[in-house]
Simulated assay, not measured.
Amino acid sequence: MTQPDQPIPSFDRQLELTDIPNIDLYMDQVIQLFERTFQETTRTEGETILTKTMINNYAKKKLFFPVTNKKYTKNHLILISLIYQLKGTFSINDIKTILTDLNTGVTEQTIDLENFYQSYLDTTEANLTAFEEQQTPTDDLDHLEQLQLILSLAHMSNLYRRAAERLIDGLEK
């Protein structure tokens, strides 16, 4: 339970295009940007959001196109943001499948990643609004009612994840 003097974590926060500087960033700057952006969505204080090891692993697994001169472009930051959103639900291999065509389109300049990402942000905003409208007040629930709600939310999460996995499987074919 959240203590009265602690802020309530936000359900959602996205890296907005306006949050991304118009200059390329070094890895430490990328980590700082992600820490500032996503800190309010963490469950516990001090929770790790992004580390050098994580970024290096994403690069080794080719989840985003190669970095030049150890600097990350706006497109890299967008892709890392998408990876951050996906990693809580999907395996690294699934994320690679999801992002392969996007990476190819960016490197071949057939996809405008900023427009794609803005469309994604618009969708997440609509999803958040729908989610907030469906939320039931939880202040008056007893323990068993809270348990029922937890189980229900977990079930819905599993249904959505399985639906997404079927789409991913379709991408692999």
Rank of each mutant, 00 (worst) to 15 (best):
Y26R: 08
T42H: 05
K71N: 04
L25W: 00
T18C: 13
S91Y: 07
L77Y: 02
L128F: 15
S91C: 08
N69W: 01
A130Y: 11
L159E: 13
Q6E: 14
G46E: 01
L25P: 00
I168W: 01
D24S: 14
L147R: 13
E35M: 09
R36K: 15
T138N: 06
T110D: 06
T110L: 06
Q134T: 13
E133P: 06
T68H: 08
E145K: 10
Y160P: 05
D139G: 09
Q146N: 14
E16K: 14
K173L: 11
Y84Q: 11
L151Y: 13
S10M: 13
D112T: 02
D24P: 02
Y58M: 00
T73V: 05
T89V: 13
F131L: 12
K70M: 07
S10R: 13
Q39G: 06
I55R: 03
Q39A: 08
R161A: 09
L63I: 05
T100V: 10
V106N: 01
V106L: 03
E132D: 09
D24F: 04
P4L: 11
K52V: 02
A154D: 08
T48C: 08
Y84K: 08
I78L: 06
T97I: 03
N57V: 07
F65S: 04
N93W: 10
Y120G: 00
L153Q: 13
Y84M: 05
I49A: 01
I31V: 05
T138G: 07
K52H: 06
L79C: 07
D94N: 08
R166L: 12
E108M: 10
